[in-house]
Amino acid sequence: MHPQVYPTEAVPLQGVNYGGLPGQPGVVQHTAVNITRGQPVITEAPKDYIIWSLCCFVYSNPFCLGLAALIYSIKARDRKVVGDVDGARHYGSTARSLNIAATIIGAIGFFIFIITISVITAQAASHYNYRY
């Protein structure tokens, strides 16, 4: 990014005339000041993972990990609004870890459920077809 340059402004110094006739504009000394700012430090705002936490809370909440992730996400968002970047980063990192754990445990539980239903259905079908 380029440093931001504000427009220069010509300000007369107490109407001092150098030459010219009285009552007519003469040469007026102006002072121009260019104000530039240094390169802004671009830091990415810490993530709060609020959407992921809501999904974990609503759809898979094993051992209340989704609820804990949602609480830490809200804390991270509050810290970010206040301006505490380090606190927001810490709470966001914790929320991310809890979301990962809740997602993995929820996915494993879902797959175990599907496999169990499939096995029970297959055994029931084979038992039903068994002839005495």
Rank of each mutant, 00 (worst) to 15 (best):
V41I: 14
A45M: 12
S118W: 11
I105D: 08
N99D: 13
V82A: 13
A45T: 12
T43D: 06
G66A: 03
Y91P: 00
H90V: 11
I105E: 06
Q123P: 00
I117E: 14
A122W: 15
A107P: 04
G92Y: 01
S53F: 03
A69K: 01
I117Q: 15
H90L: 12
D86H: 00
A69W: 01
F111T: 09
S118P: 01
I42C: 04
V81R: 15
I100H: 08
I74R: 01
V119D: 08
G87N: 04
S73M: 06
H127A: 14
C55W: 12
C55E: 15
N129M: 13
E44T: 10
T116Q: 09
S60K: 01
A45P: 00
Y49M: 07
L98N: 03
T116H: 04
R89T: 10
V85F: 04
R77G: 09
I42M: 11
T121G: 10
V58P: 00
S53M: 04
D48V: 09
F57T: 09
Q123S: 12
T94N: 03
A125S: 13
N129C: 07
A68L: 11
I50Y: 12
G92I: 02
T43M: 05
D84C: 05
T43A: 11
A88Y: 03
F111I: 14
A88T: 06
C55Y: 14
D78W: 07
I51C: 00
H127T: 08
S60L: 01
R96W: 06
S73E: 03
V85S: 07
F111S: 13
K75V: 15
I74G: 08
N99H: 06
Y128G: 07
V82M: 06
I108P: 00
I104K: 12
I50S: 11
S126R: 15
V58N: 12
T103M: 08
Y128K: 11
F113I: 04
V81P: 00
I115C: 10
S126H: 06
V41S: 07
I74Q: 03
